[in-house]
Amino acid sequence: MQQVRRESIKDMLRSIGFVNVQELVNRFGVSSETIRRDLEAMEKDGLVRRIHGGAVSTQPVVSESAYTLRRQFHTPEKQAIAHAAANLICDGDTVLIAPGTTTLEIASQLRKRANLTVITNSLPITMELADCAGINVFCLGGHLQGADFSTSGITAMQNLSLFNATKLIIGIGGITPQRGITDYRMEESVLLRAFVEKSDCVIGIADHSKFGVTAMYNICPADRLNHLITDSGTPEDLYKPFCDMGVQVHVAQADMPAL
Rank of each mutant, 00 (worst) to 15 (best):
Q2G: 13
V4E: 15
E7G: 08
I16D: 00
F18I: 06
V30I: 05
E33S: 15
R36C: 01
R36H: 10
R37N: 13
E40A: 09
M42N: 01
I51G: 11
H52T: 14
A55Q: 05
S57T: 10
V61I: 15
V61E: 15
V62L: 03
V62P: 04
Y67K: 08
T68R: 15
T68V: 05
P76Q: 04
E77R: 12
K78Q: 09
A80F: 03
A80C: 10
A82I: 02
N87W: 02
C90W: 07
C90F: 03
D91V: 04
T101E: 00
T101K: 01
T101R: 00
T101Y: 03
T103D: 02
T103Q: 01
E105G: 11
L110S: 07
K112V: 00
R113A: 01
A114V: 13
A114F: 14
T120H: 09
T120G: 11
P124E: 06
T126Q: 09
A130K: 14
A133M: 13
N136K: 15
V137K: 14
V137S: 13
F138M: 11
G141T: 02
L144V: 12
A147I: 12
A147R: 15
D148S: 01
F149E: 10
S150F: 00
M157I: 06
N159K: 08
N159A: 04
L160A: 08
L162H: 15
L162M: 11
T166V: 01
G173N: 09
G174L: 00
I175H: 12
I175A: 05
Q178A: 03
G180L: 01
I181Y: 05
R185T: 12
R185L: 07
M186E: 15
V190H: 12
V190N: 10
A194M: 11
C201H: 06
C201M: 06
V202W: 03
V202F: 02
V202M: 06
G212S: 12
T214W: 01
A215T: 07
P221V: 04
R224F: 01
S232D: 14
T234A: 07
D237K: 06
K240C: 00
P241F: 01
H250T: 05
A252Y: 01
P257K: 08
